[in-house]
């Protein structure tokens, strides 16, 4: 594991400090790649867009997942398992086939727009290769992670504590923010990270749903390893992406107070 996971990542870091010339890597230590990445307007714009997109997709997934995970864990009864498996089953289909399916719905000639045209109405621009469409697609792809993370956390949550809160004067909303959310914050944080990280690096979804103007950082990163063959620059992009992910994970982790997670609580 160490060999096949950490070493390749380290190699990428090393290469990002070299340069590529006509498809070959030159062992020549420099930081030009980073200088380019951090000064050139285009790259920063792409990075900014990716961060914005990842934040938005994470927030939407978060807000949508909580009531659903709660409902399944609280009221699912004997159907809990089916209900939660149903939310995660599409995840296994793989990105490319799901994007294919999504294009048929939200794409420019997806069913929604074709229906509108057939009814003599204007097609919705939002579905014509836009950031909105790729955002929807990304939520579609990654929301199962969020639901699963929150659900698994809620499985080990003692719902009786809510009764305690209510008897002690907490309204349902207050009880949620005082008891439910803090005690399930680790699960929620894991969900946030699991959605944020892949969305940040997304390249396929924006390519097929976002179109030309919807390109994100992941697209230009993929480009360096495809057509242009500028591996060193691409590696530097990978490193930047990795660092942004790490920073995001760190920021989320900062909000977790292990002592207050309830994990150490044992059998209270």
């Amino acid at each position: 594991m160490l060999f096949f996971f950490v070493l390749p990542l380290l190699t990428t870091v090393v290469i990002s400090f070299w340069r590529t010339e006509s498809y070959t890597i030159i062992h020549d230590w420099n930081i030009d790649n980073y200088v380019v990445l951090l000064t050139k307007h285009t790259y920063l714009v792409f990075l900014g867009r990716s961060i914005l997109m990842a934040t938005a997709v994470t927030l939407i997934s978060l807000i949508y997942s909580w009531p659903i995970a709660y409902f399944i864990a609280y009221a699912g009864g004997r159907y809990k398992l089916v209900l939660v498996l149903l939310t995660s089953a599409p995840f296994f289909t793989g990105i490319i086939l799901r994007v294919t399916a999504l294009q048929q719905i939200f794409g420019p000639i997806g069913i929604i727009n074709t229906a509108l045209i057939n009814l003599g109405l204007k097609p919705i621009n939002a579905f014509m290769y836009s950031n909105f469409a790729s955002g929807m697609g990304l939520v579609y792809l990654w929301i199962p992670f969020m639901i699963l993370a929150i659900y698994l956390s809620l499985l080990n949550f003692n719902f009786d504590l809510l009764e305690v809160a209510k008897v002690n004067g907490a309204s349902p909303i207050k009880a949620f923010f005082e008891v439910t959310l803090p005690l399930n914050w680790i699960g929620t944080a894991v969900g946030i990270v699991l959605v944020f990280v892949p969305t940040l690096a997304a390249s396929i979804t924006p390519r097929f749903l976002g179109g030309v103007n919807g390109a994100l950082f992941g697209n230009i990163l993929a480009h360096q390893f495809g057509a242009t063959g500028t591996w060193a620059l691409g590696s530097a992009m990978g490193v930047v992406l990795f660092f942004v992910s790490i920073i995001a994970i760190f920021l989320v982790w900062k909000t977790v107070d292990l002592r207050r997670s309830g994990f150490t609580g044992g059998d209270i």
Binding site: M1, F5, T12, S235, G238
Partner: peptide, 25 residues
Amino acid sequence: IFYLAPLFVAHILIGISSLIFNKAI
């Protein structure tokens, strides 16, 4: 944390880094 770390790394990064590792190293 170590075993779960790959979950928190984007696939594209795993892809390119192992490409680089195999080919270049």
